[in-house]
Design a binder for these strands. Structure first.
Lengths: 146, 146
DNA sequence: AGTTTTAGGTTGCTTATGCAATTAAACTAA
DNA sequence: TTAGTTTAATTGCATAAGCAACCTAAAACT
C-alpha cells in the first residue's frame, strides 16, 4: 500500500514530467502565435546564447543536460534557420564556438516576451514561497541523479 | 531585473524539466541493469495497464498526456515486444482495448522494484512535506496549461 | 433512411532524444 | 618524437514526440 501510494502520488507526477511537457508545448504555441518558428528545445539553447555567445557545444550540453549528439543536431537545425553559426576555435581546433546571427539576436525580445507570457499562464494560482521550495526540490532531485 | 530573475530562477528549471529527464534516464538505466529492455515511455503506459487492463488508446492518451499518434506507436512497439495486445472492441468497433500478455504481467514486479529504487535514489535528502507542496504546484501548473 | 457531425485510430512529415561507435585534435608520458 | 590517452564533435541506429490530414465507425440531425 505505502509502496503503491509512493508511486501514484510522489513519483509518477515527477517521472512523467507532465508540468514541464505542458509548459514546453504552451511556449511553443505562444511562440508560433507571435510568428517565431522555433521549437522549445531550440529556445533552450538560444536562451543561454542570448546571455553569452561563444559557448562551445560541450558547454551547451552541460547547461541543458543533453548529450553531445543532441546539441550537434540542434545546432545543425539552428544553423539551417540562420539563427546561429559555428565558428571553429583557432586556439583549439576540436571545438566550435557558437555565435548568434543578427537574426538570432533580433528575435530575443519576442521570444522572451512569449516566455514571460507562458510563465504568467503557468503560475496562475501558484504560491510564490512554495514555488521556491519546489524549485529547490527539483534541483535536489536533479543533483541526486545526474 | 525582475524579469530576468523570473526566467533564470523560477521558470527555466521547470521548462527544461531537467529533474524529470534525469528521473526517466535513471529509471531506464535501472531497468536495463535488471535486464528489462523497455523505455521509460513504455513503462508509463504499462504502469496504467498493470493497474487496469482493457483501457482504450484514447484513455491511455488522456492519462499520460500524449496525443493519439504517440500512443498508437507506443502500442505498436509494445506489441512487437509481445508485452501487450490490441483487442478490437465488439461493442464499438472504432476502439481497441489494450491488454497485457502473460509476459507483460510477469515483468511488473521487476519494473516496480526498479521504479522504487529510482525513487529512493531521486528523493535522497528531500523533505517529504515540501515534496507534497511541490507535487501540488506541478499539478496546478499542469491544470493551468493543459 | 440519409446526411452530417463527432470520435477513435492510423499514416506522413519533421524534430528531438539516447546510446554506441567513430574521427580528429590536443595532451601526457616515455 | 612518438605512442597512448583524453576530449570535442559527428554519424549511425532506434525510439519518441507533435501536428496535420486521413479513414472508418458511431451518433446526431432532419
Amino acid at each position: 500500500m505505502t509502496s503503491d501510494n509512493l508511486f501514484a502520488e510522489e513519483f509518477f507526477s515527477f517521472l512523467t514530467g507532465k508540468a514541464s511537457t505542458a509548459m514546453s508545448r504552451r511556449l511553443q504555441r505562444n511562440l508560433k502565435e507571435s510568428c517565431v518558428t522555433i521549437t522549445s528545445e531550440q529556445w533552450s539553447l538560444l536562451y543561454y546564447l542570448w546571455n553569452e555567445e561563444g559557448l562551445t557545444q560541450q558547454e551547451l550540453a552541460n547547461l541543458t543536460f543533453r548529450d553531445k549528439p543532441s546539441i550537434s543536431r540542434l545546432i545543425n537545425n539552428l544553423e539551417k534557420l540562420k539563427l546561429v553559426i559555428r565558428v571553429n576555435d583557432k586556439g583549439d581546433r576540436r571545438t566550435n564556438l557558437i555565435y548568434l546571427t543578427k537574426e538570432g539576436r533580433k528575435i530575443k525580445t519576442d521570444c522572451m516576451a512569449q516566455a514571460s507570457r507562458t510563465i504568467t499562464e503557468a503560475l496562475d494560482n501558484v504560491d510564490r514561497d512554495k514555488l521556491k521550495d519546489a524549485q529547490h526540490i527539483l534541483e535536489t532531485v536533479y543533483q541526486n541523479l545526474r
